[in-house]
Design a protein around this nucleic acid. Sequence first.
RNA 1: GGGCCGGUAGCUCAGUCCGGCAGAGCGUCUGGCUUUUAACCAGACGGUCGCGUGUUCAAAUCGCGCCCGGCCCGCCA
Length: 581
Amino acid sequence: MSDESSVGGANGASDDANPYTLQSADDEHHAFWADAVADRVEARVEDQLERGVRDPEEPIVVKGGISPSGVPHLGNVNEIMRGYYVARVLRERGHEVRQVFTADDRDPLRKLPRTLCDLEGNLVDLGDVDAGALGRNLGAPYTDIPDPFGCCDSYGDHFSNIIQDSADAVDVPIELVSNTDLYERGEFEDVTRYVLENRSRAREVLSSYQDKVDADGDYVPFNPICAECGKITETVTSVDLDAGEAGTVDYRCTDMDAGDRTIDGCGHEGAATLREGKLPWRFEWPAQWQILGVDFEPFGKDHAEGSWPSGQDVARNVLGIEPPVPMVYEWFTLDGEPFSSSEGNVILVSDVLELLEPEVLRYFFAKDPSRARDFSIERLDQLVDEFDRFEAIYFGELEGTEDEREFAERVYPLVLEEDAEVREERIRLPYTFAAVLGMFDDPALREEVARKEGHIPENAPEWAVDAALARVERARNWARRTGNEFDYELKRSEIPDHEFDAATTAALSELAEFVATAETIDPEELQGEIYETAKRNDVDVGDFFAAGYRLFFDEEQGPKLGPFLAKVDREFVVDRLRRDR
RNA sequence: GGGCCGGUAGCUCAGUCCGGCAGAGCGUCUGGCUUUUAACCAGACGGUCGCGUGUUCAAAUCGCGCCCGGCCCGCCA
């Protein structure tokens, strides 16, 4: 107690939890990482019960959290989904679990994001909102800044709402908690007071992680909000824990470093209560663990070497609590580039769900968190195919490797929404095929073609057919968004550039004649006639089909031509085959 | 500068904990389905498991040293 030099530093106590290793030597082998994590959470809970420091009635708490600083992109979903799987596994084992998610909305706005989004998820350029009003609020807590869209109580609330929408969209039940709320209701008051009472201890612990903190200096772990200009300030001049209800601090509103720039302070000198400010992140995080009773928290690799080591040290050696079970997840990229709202490289959950089913997205987040991955919109078909295979292996329709079987068996039921039935009769149209089907606007026609091609069984239940056809819309959105080879577009208004030899030209004229004079156009008969016409004119069949795709789509390849042309109005088909228009 | 994570076929990824023939799907190529699109079936091609080294009968896997990408030691999934 008297010898403070024995306090562990960066490489402190031997029981420090390594947030990386999901499987340590003494763990049982699991096909699913969340099972390994759940083992550790259970061990933590049992240990606390044995030591009598835990109420057996209290549920297990899984936490996540982000600053509502702007467009919540797909990377943020890690914070929701990784915790979800652990929560779900623990529930499966009979535990009561709360999944709490903090909106760290008392954090200050440090720089203006170049891209924002409205509540519908439409991306909006900073220039299209009142950027000046935002600029004047640099340094102020998100919840004190007016919503640039005018629809929510504050900037922070605006983006917190979108976080909640994202969780809803992937069917993850989170309890969204506003950090500002916790401060205003006084939930942080006791722990803040405790940290300030023990501020020399706090300084000492933090100083071994941050050079700017001097163990013997005057650093005070509290940032008041300036009563004059509303900004978060960093200079506390004195602490009086006997003043007012729970104590106050005196401050001077000084400049704040924010990356490569400085946010000016107004110079105001005043006093703030412990509810009128915030703890610095390195203390706030452990304080959240204490207030919310957090047992498990996943976090991005950015925290793994900074906040986490200091966080568990602060938890043990300042607050005297046991930090939660940690888990690091690797970041992933979007089409090979880091997520960045300023560069416009963002995608919202709502956008992704216009391209694929929620269970496919949930599957993506069930994969090994320690692996760096690319979420490729361009090659989204690969992810969907991978999911279809995973599902088929679960139902025993594909053999797969032993590892695949083990993983599918364990994880497939978990990627389905919580109360969803596991239904073997489900139908998955191959994604790229679904994209091609998207060129037909008529749902009945889509179904007809899918049936004809053998993708929908004779006696398929109606719900399965509907669900299968729902993929067509999504795959079509994908084809359009990427403008890839599955985005077939009938070139109706203008004939594409083309160059055919005499034989091909003759064959096209013959085919036009057939279409013009037939009583009715039967799709399969037309398909056969294309084949026959090519042969009669000594044209390679493949080349002849290619000529058709050129004329109608300006592509090398396309949908099955006979059935397609049979559905297009006859005059146009005849004219185009004659190259008249 | 110190520390951490990642790197496996053209692409997306398993396999690394626990050493045992280098794997899957997609793509490509060839052939088949006496119809050729999306597919499906059969086969082929495709690898310095980032590089080197040590241990071992045996190394993608374990140790050590490097390279590349990213992250942390300010803030931030």
